[in-house]
């Protein structure tokens, strides 16, 4: 990827961000319910019609749609995402506070997934259509069919409640044990999915000509697998890993809710349930940005991991 392509991508990201924010803004305007009412109710106050109107005026909610949108956009450009209606704190600091737990969970679950999916997929491909392959494929098939919230609850029930291996509810918010169940739950579904992907990629690579070439030069099966086929087959999967990481970083609502994990996902659920529009808008904007940034980073990384990209300029 050259500089021109990079700038084009950055431009694209900006356009999408504007589009996404416009879309959420529109959605919020069309939504039933009154944010000001919700706000007062969450404070335990039942406001009069007069108070409601005054607050609306003060918050600029009576202005035309585009005025409101551009005011919000201008503030965002100044780094101000507004105040959360329901938590009475700046949206930016709320988001920032959830970043670290989400990052920890994303990385640990990706790591566990890779630990299982890569070897399993490789074994399955190398022994394709042998018993071990059928077993692995069978398990992954059941794996992708299990609802992740159910997997989470089962893990919680058996590991924490029945076997007492882990605390059900942790007293220490920073304890490493908090990470175990959410990580396992997330890694479970991803492992099932990626084992199949790795298998497909390795099988495809095994049929490439250079495998015959290497064999014809006297390389052992082992060397061919480990020095050529496996590294090459992971290359096309990097994009998919990037997409997964990008979505994990946006928060994993279901899992965070099950384990009351303080990540971006559970913040988003709170925001949506409380009709906390500034927080919803800030959240959607933020995760879109992260998701696209990760994807851009992945594409840039191909410059370094796939030598073919560099020479071709615009691929």
């Amino acid at each position: 990827m050259d500089l021109k392509e990079f700038l084009r991508r950055i431009g694209q990201i900006i356009i999408v961000l504007i589009g996404v924010s416009f879309f959420t803004f529109l959605l919020v305007q069309l939504a039933p319910g009154d944010p000001v009412m919700t706000m007062y109710q969450s404070m335990g106050i039942i406001p009069t019609e007069e108070v409601l109107n005054e607050t609306r005026e003060a918050m600029g909610l009576n202005d035309p749609f585009f005025v409101q949108y551009f005011r919000w956009l201008a503030n965002v450009l100044k780094g101000d995402l507004g105040m959360s209606y329901s938590k009475y704190r700046p949206v930016a600091s709320l988001l920032a506070g959830r970043m670290w737990p989400t990052l920890k969970l994303s990385i640990s679950s990706m790591f566990v997934m890779l630990l299982f999916a890569v070897p399993l997929g490789m074994i399955s491909a190398v022994y394709s259509n042998k018993p071990i392959d059928y077993i692995v494929r069978g398990i992954t098939f059941f794996g992708v069919s299990m609802p992740n919230f159910w997997v989470g609850l089962l893990l919680l029930y058996f590991l924490a409640m029945k076997l007492n291996l882990l605390p059900v509810i942790s007293t220490d918010p920073n304890a490493l044990s908090n990470l175990v169940l959410p990580t396992l739950t997330l890694a479970f579904a991803m492992t099932a999915k990626y084992t199949r992907q790795v298998r497909t990629a390795v099988l495809e690579e095994l049929h490439k000509d250079y495998v015959i070439g290497a064999k014809g030069r006297g390389e052992s099966e082992r060397a061919i697998l480990f020095k050529h086929v496996f590294p090459n087959s992971l290359l096309p999967l990097v994009t998919m890993f990037g997409l997964s990481l990008g979505s994990l970083l946006g928060g994993t609502s279901v899992v965070e809710v099950i384990f009351t994990y303080p990540g971006l996902g559970s913040l988003a659920i709170d925001a949506i349930k409380a009709m906390d529009y500034p927080l919803i808008q800030g959240y959607v904007l933020w995760i879109s940005l992260i998701y696209m940034a990760v994807n851009l980073a992945v594409d840039i990384s191909y410059n370094f991991i796939d030598p073919r990209i560099k020479g071709e300029g615009k691929a």
Partner: peptide, 8 residues
């Protein structure tokens, strides 16, 4: 084509 394309 008989040589791995992503190694020198």
């Amino acid at each position: 084509a008989m040589i791995n394309p992503i190694r020198t």
